[in-house]
Computed example of a mutant assay.
Amino acid sequence: MHINLTGKTALVTASTGGIGFAIAQGLAATGATVVINGRSDSSVQKALARIREALPQASLSGAVADLSNADGVDALIAALPAVDILVNNAGIYGLVDFFETDDACWENYWQTNVMSGVRLSRALVPAMVERGWGRVVFISSESGLNIPADMIHYGVTKTAQLSLSRGLAKRVAGSGVTVNSVLPGPTLSDGLAHMLDEERVRSGKTLEAVAAEFVMQHRPTSLIQRAATVEEVANMVVYVCSTQASATSGAALRVDGGVVDDIV
């Protein structure tokens, strides 16, 4: 299958590293013009340089904005060209016991993980509907279905993204704009690599081996019995953004390695 998104412009939020970066590079490889977003100019410039090194002909631009508050989202919207593809990837996570998550913690997660996507979709989707074509993807998580006891606050925001995605897909039904969620499972992102680095050094094992052990300890229902790569997650997102995926909307598409023990 050859995916060609030449002539389309994509915004991938929080795309200077990890899954977001892999998505941005994957979309750039299809010919799309990609807007790289991060919270600092240095991180954005480094990401742009990395993609240009891999894809010298890539059409790219950068936009610095902190999406954890309305002002940051407004600043990003003001700097954007017309956008055909919106990938709501911005998000934070962390292990915090429920009884230690205060209102400020809940608010920070809600604003970053949920409201950034609400605000960007509200601002950008109407023009997609007018043009008769668009793609919106929310990067949720298997934790939105399989709520982790050690980060309930995170799981709640990921469940909210599923509701938001499905509801927005209904709102724009028949318009040529599709809205979907992608649910990664344990993934070898920068964050997981950092978390496992001490064990990797102590054991002398490869990062992949340590990550596989982590998955089997904490997500024993995994069918692939390892962590996914960021590229494997990005492949699903790029497909959902393609013209070939025009009949897929309102879906929650899992790239969780089978962690969620469900046949639906």
Rank of each mutant, 00 (worst) to 15 (best):
G91V: 01
K158H: 11
A49E: 14
A79G: 12
Q25E: 11
R226V: 04
A149V: 06
M1V: 13
R119T: 14
A193Q: 15
N235D: 13
N88S: 05
Q25F: 01
S249P: 05
D102H: 11
S175Q: 06
D102W: 07
Q161S: 05
A79T: 13
L162N: 01
F99T: 15
A227I: 14
Q244N: 08
N113T: 07
E130A: 15
D197T: 12
A22D: 07
V156P: 03
L124K: 10
A127H: 04
V12K: 04
V64W: 08
G94E: 11
S143Q: 10
I139Y: 03
V34R: 01
S59A: 11
A63W: 09
Q217W: 08
G155A: 08
I263H: 13
G7E: 06
A149C: 08
P184H: 07
S140C: 07
V264G: 09
I3C: 04
W106H: 12
R122F: 11
L55W: 14
T159E: 02
L76Q: 01
E130Y: 14
A29N: 11
L120S: 07
S246E: 13
G17L: 12
G62M: 05
L192I: 15
G204W: 08
L95F: 07
R226Q: 12
L162T: 01
R171M: 09
V237N: 01
T159F: 01
A104V: 10
F99A: 15
L145Q: 01
L253R: 00
L124D: 10
A252E: 08
V125Y: 06
D190F: 13
H153A: 03
A10Q: 03
I263V: 15
I51E: 01
I92F: 07
L5F: 11
V12N: 07
A193H: 13
E107H: 12
P184K: 06
L145E: 00
R135W: 02
Q57R: 12
G250M: 03
L196D: 13
V172M: 06
V118K: 08
T112V: 12
L253H: 00
K205E: 13
E107K: 12
S143E: 08
P186Q: 07
V129A: 03
S222E: 12
G185T: 03
S165A: 15
P184D: 11
V259L: 05
T9V: 13
A22H: 05
W106A: 07
I263C: 14
T33M: 05
R202P: 06
N37E: 09
A70W: 13
D197R: 15
V118G: 06
G174F: 14
G38E: 05
V114F: 09
R39L: 10
S246H: 08
L124H: 12
V215T: 15
R200V: 15
M128A: 02
V156Y: 02
V260G: 02
L253S: 00
A149N: 07
G117F: 10
P148M: 01
I147H: 00
L67I: 11
N69M: 10
S143K: 06
G250R: 01
I92R: 14
V136S: 00
I19C: 02
G134M: 05
A160K: 05
T187A: 08
S59F: 04
R219V: 10
M216P: 07
V255G: 00
D256H: 09
G72Y: 03
A29V: 09
P148L: 00
H218A: 10
R131N: 04
G167K: 06
A24L: 14
